[in-house]
Design a protein around this nucleic acid. Sequence first.
DNA 1: TCTGGGGTCCTAGGACCC
DNA 2: TCTGGGGTCCTAGGACCC
Length: 425
Amino acid sequence: MKKIFALVDCNNFYASCERVFNPRLEGKPVVVLSNNDGCVIARSEETKALGIKMGQPAFKSEKLFKKHGILVYSSNYALYGDMSDRVMETLRQFARDMEIYSIDEAFLSLPYTTPEQMTDYAREIRKTVKKWTGIPVSIGIGPTKTLAKVASKIAKKYARFKGVFNITDHEKTDQILEKFPVGDIWGVGPRYEAFLKRHGIKNALQLKRAHDAWVKKHLTVMGLRTVMELRGVPCFSLEQMPAARKGIMSSRSFGRPVESLDELKEALATYTAIAAEKLRSQHSAATILHVFLMTNRFKKNEPQYYSSSTTILPVASSYTPELIRFACEQLEKIYKPGYRYKKIGVFLAEIVSQDRIQLNLLSLDYPHERNKTLMQVVDKMNQRLGPGTVQFGAEGTRKEWHMRRKLLSPRYTTQWSEIPVVKTG
DNA sequence: TCTGGGGTCCTAGGACCC
DNA sequence: TCTGGGGTCCTAGGACCC
């Protein structure tokens, strides 16, 4: 049976999540900040109307926030992740074939019927998601993923479409594409946008009509696929099985500059433990461990330093204490005193399946089973009682370098113990 | 005082081999 | 005197995504 793509995109997802549990925010301007309360990463419609831009640094916007009474939140990924699961479960009721594309987007594969029927079905999806989860979504329908993306942006932009736009429902697709800015196309970022504009390509129709060889030469085969998709030729298929991660990264900026090796080690151990847990959750182990360290690049008047170091593990591992030990060894190699560090991180790569670890001769007397059991217990407790319930000594307890999250909402859906206790008396 | 984090894929160019 | 060239692998860097 012929199929069509629908892209379901949650509107202002993080801001909408905050709203679901705090009706006081309804109709008011809301922003959610990135980790460390750094910059704006989500805005409600009211905030967008006030001219607050995506990625704007929070400290430069404080006056505007105050002036307009904008309600500001630190990002609460425990809440957003849980809300995302609810939205995706709801969508699964409507389409057996579905790809969870990001925390707030999913592609559905729907039967190709009549344009009216497909649009009606999307309206039904939209209504149900709102009813079951409280999250408003926009839905774009098109013959390729790229065109479904175009349609979803139109659905979101023009209120008259009431959240659903079906590009197959219009005879004159080219007229729609002509009004669609080239930089809004999925796969065209700021660099390509500027390049294309320099060559007179300003809208999606012009890109659709560009010459294949020219596109391939300047935008690589990925760009050519985008162009084919604009022409209605599917080049990107529905990926139902998420591919195993090729690398796992864990890093954060510090809440204040950090100078001492001891504190850097604490932070690095903490992030390594996070990465190791992710590794175990996908039943894999890593062979390469990469550590990096940097100062604050925005501080032009301070001395800058960046360094990184990679080690190949003798045997692939997902055992937190061992990974922490390797990570700290790397850190000692690259650490230089006298700098004010801003960020540290670890990247685990060459990931292999847990049950296919190549043991070398030296490791035969290694207590693999005992370590595995220990990690399972740690992971279970942290899942049930909240992250950080059980941690390793190297991670430290004071964590004064920890990122700022001054404006965090409670974890309404996942954790009763973190709802702030009101002190009396 | 204060500027996020975590991914993917592709290409060019160097090293190396025969 | 004259000094190849194709294939493969790896890495760094650049583009993109949310």
